[in-house]
Design a protein around this nucleic acid. Sequence first.
DNA 1: TTGTAGGCGTTATCAT
DNA 2: ATGATAACGCCTACAA
Lengths: 357, 357
Amino acid sequence: MTKSTPPLSNTIADIKALIHRESRRVTSYDVAMLAGVSQSAVSRCFKPGASVSKATYARVMEAARSLDYTPNAAARSLITRRSNLVAVILSDTVGLNYPDILTELSRQFSLRGMHIILFNLPTEAGIDQTLAEVWQHQVDGAIVAVRLSAAQVAEFERRSVPLVLFNRNLADRTVNAVVCDQEEAARAMVTRLAAAGHKRFAMIDGPAHSTAAQQRKHGVATRLAELGLALPLSVEGNFDYASGARGLREIIDRFGGVPDAVICANDLMAIGCIDTARHDFRLDVPGRLSVAGFDGIAASRWISYKLTTMRQPLHSMAQAAAALLLGLVADGNATPERRVYSATFVDGATARLGPPA
Amino acid sequence: MTKSTPPLSNTIADIKALIHRESRRVTSYDVAMLAGVSQSAVSRCFKPGASVSKATYARVMEAARSLDYTPNAAARSLITRRSNLVAVILSDTVGLNYPDILTELSRQFSLRGMHIILFNLPTEAGIDQTLAEVWQHQVDGAIVAVRLSAAQVAEFERRSVPLVLFNRNLADRTVNAVVCDQEEAARAMVTRLAAAGHKRFAMIDGPAHSTAAQQRKHGVATRLAELGLALPLSVEGNFDYASGARGLREIIDRFGGVPDAVICANDLMAIGCIDTARHDFRLDVPGRLSVAGFDGIAASRWISYKLTTMRQPLHSMAQAAAALLLGLVADGNATPERRVYSATFVDGATARLGPPA
DNA sequence: TTGTAGGCGTTATCAT
DNA sequence: ATGATAACGCCTACAA
């Protein structure tokens, strides 16, 4: 009998027609009307841990389901001041080429009901424009893997937007960061290569704007100097395969011959360098020339390369960055923390590490 | 003289103190007060093409700047019903491993002041949960590269959320999509290989849930049949390097020998297959065994491989997807469009294409 | 060109 | 446990 149905103020069809006529969205008022409760009751039903009776909850949820109601995040964000949005700011040269990072970040955040707004900079120049857009979206926090000026970092603080830097060092400020110690990694690599008796080094550097590249180069140079070896001939690359290939040609050209070892600022360039050495110059790697990289990307493990490299624990780092940020979002004034990871040496097959043949 | 300054209702310091005391955000009212105009005047200044006098505009902007005011996207979205947010829904297996796609999408959208909310599914199972989150965020549109049921597609329509499928076919519905004709690509590859006299084919297939893999396999199988060749022995892989390596071993095992050609459902598996063939089985590729892939990823062009493959125009496709979606956002009821791209054959060095030696 | 007033859809407060 | 009411910060007629 119709009498046994719950006291609906209107039928589903009526309400749907009304919404359509006014061409608006389904709101909690519509659900309330259908369920025969107040709007605030509906709101409470969608808030975990609110006090609602079993019966009310069931009727509200049923009404919501039949109207396809979903809370409006914009309206919620307006009043709660939480958007459940996290900005992830990357740059073309480095960010998306390491899919692990975004994958892990995305996983961690969606586990807590938060989502990523992606800001991918073609060039790190336009960052101020990007930040303006970040502020508009009222993000709850940001993970930034591009270079930030002290002023820009300060703006995050002024706006109380938790910030975690990823693999970016900012010398003069205490700011939350997850980094891999690039200089230490570079020194470790040099130590290994030098111990094996390599004397004549060359380096294929990364782009000038990359702090990781700078630190790797600095580590290489200082460690070599400590060991009494000459500073390496260094040519600039931009982290891609082609510049590894170009780099080797330039080195052989300017060096007037083949050095003992080429250290590349990342794996991709190392792979380009190795391919060119083997195929174009017919050089035995590592027999005649040792080549090493940094990162530990997937391709570095391929059978054709088995690259000798310093592997960054990117997965753990991404996880840590997410955890750090989530902590800051929960507790606004936690003390700045800096998590430093070490790269691990990967004993590959592209650098001679034993005594010379 | 102080008299020459604009008639500010309050000093900057006063207003900042007020805001801080009430611990709220800087609003357009604060800017209005500082600039000595109404709140709606401020609002108009931030709306491109609104009618504001030069003088007012200048004073408002100056006030906004000195207060670090930024419009609140949530509040704006509430009234305009535009969030300037686009959902991009990918899955682990396919999405982030092709960085070009996200890079280009991000570029195109940010050019129009829109931004990407990233939804990266660990598994395509949890998609309903993901969609619920998409609805909450009131996105202006979505680009989806995972499998969607007809019901799920219908829900986009019901909610008037423009949808563009990326490399996903949905047979029974007319829905906006940008796809690459995988079956045609597969047929083209088979035609080439067969013309060179390959007789005994094998295939390393993609994961079952990938429509692209299904279509590639179907194209391979049907074209082979048309040419009077046996259906290939097919083993299942999951699109990664390791499964290419495993795949070849399994093929040789089950085949009881080495086939003439192995067609892999993507480049990454092809590379794994080639490495294993050359290093573990000491097979000459392409002399003794031809290997081909699909996609045209960056590594496929590396000197060590020069992979024979069918290259998808991912860059153009991403561009088209963004353009299509932007068109739909501008004009809600544009007619469904399906843009089909063709893969181009890349005459690499891993498959014999001339007469047998 | 400018100001006034109302509403977007939700959560939070405070009664009841 | 539930309901009325006041924000949240902005846009947009409409009137001036």
